[in-house]
Amino acid sequence: MIAVENISKSFDGRQVLHDISVEFLNGRTNLIIGQSGSGKTVLLNSIVGLHQPDSGHIYYDGRDITVMSKKERTMLRREIGMLFQGSALFDSMTLLENVMFPLDMFSDKSYKERKARAMLCIDRVNLLGSEYKHPAELSGGMQKRAAIARAIAMEPRYLFCDEPNSGLDPKTSLVIDKLISEITHENNITTIVNTHDMNSVIGIGENILFINNGAAAWQGNSKEVLTSNNKMLNDFVFASEFSKQLRQDILANIH
């Protein structure tokens, strides 16, 4: 479990996060949603330690990352897997080398064992047959799946995904969402997904935090999103006329 307590962060005098407190549960797909510029990426970066918050604490199963020494933080990061918005695969390496990289860096296993683990991860994301291709030879969806394979190679306890569906078509987005959700449940890890894809919110959101202007504005699950009376949340999630009508129809069926 990751517990965020009273986190605030400002850049050049402009406050981006206002006193956010939230718990991200173990074995669940936790989502952070909000408009562009609402502060969700800053929150995610603060949680993973890329930004040092101005105040507040972030606990990884009781371990406070904000007061950790550099060495302790480095050790903690080995328990973290991260999927970046642009995949962030290493251009000069093949898919297999990318997935093997964290194992090569931190694992004491033999080459044969490391390769077997990497192949298992590549198989898990259905990319067998592409292991000797470079990132430039892979499609956007394949790159995202490759990045997931690299993120889970070290069997992380915490998985972070920054806008995993950006730039992907709806069908591929569903594949990525399903993969993230399955991996979370299979390995019982704490997953935090930063997204503004409404299909993800409804599809895999087990614990959703809605951020508005840097403050926590709502928290619940995907079913509660449909029935919530929070105007800011509804304006964001059901922004189009079509989705507003869809929500009305669903609510009418529920009642």
């Binding site: 480095t74 990061r77 973290i80 970046f84 290493f90 990289f101 972070f160």
Partner: peptide, 12 residues
């Protein structure tokens, strides 16, 4: 392209 961020996150 966030490849350096990816290294940092891994603890490298």
């Amino acid at each position: 392209t966030q490849q350096i961020d990816a290294l940092d996150i891994m603890g490298v």
